[in-house]
Amino acid sequence: MQLIMYGGEEFLTGDEIADALLAYGRALGDEERAEIIEIPVREDDGSVVSAKFLIGPASQIVSKTVHDRGPELQDDALVGRLKDLTRGVESPTGPLLEISGENAYDAD
């Protein structure tokens, strides 16, 4: 499990979720963009709730590994979506254009 420190608060979530959130935040920061991302977090009483994070160039997020805080939180669909979003920011592609009989990517 990972303890995310954000805005003076601590949020407990799964390893893969935390890693995907941080990777997406780094990618957005590199592009000077920001997004709101919702992830599952475990409360002190063991319940699972959603928390929204504004991530981007000004985000100050720290994550550390913690043990014995209950079962690992997992959300494969969320992790996959965050990884896809990260790839989209890091390697954007555009529609193919026909230039002088050759295919080329639109630079926009």
Rank of each mutant, 00 (worst) to 15 (best):
V48N: 04
V49E: 09
V49M: 06
S50Q: 15
S50I: 10
A51I: 07
A51T: 02
F53D: 03
I55C: 01
G56E: 06
A58I: 08
S59C: 03
S59T: 06
V62A: 10
V62P: 00
S63T: 04
S63N: 00
S63P: 01
K64M: 13
K64C: 11
T65E: 14
T65I: 14
V66Q: 07
V66L: 03
V66W: 02
V66A: 08
D68G: 13
R69E: 14
R69C: 11
R69T: 04
R69L: 05
G70I: 10
P71Y: 06
E72Y: 04
E72C: 05
E72V: 05
L73R: 00
L73A: 05
Q74T: 12
Q74G: 10
D75E: 08
D76P: 07
L78H: 09
R81Y: 08
R81D: 15
R81Q: 15
L82V: 05
L82H: 05
D84I: 11
D84Q: 13
L85W: 09
L85D: 14
T86H: 10
G88E: 13
V89F: 01
E90G: 04
E90I: 07
S91C: 07
P92R: 09
T93E: 11
G94R: 14
G94N: 15
G94M: 10
P95Y: 13
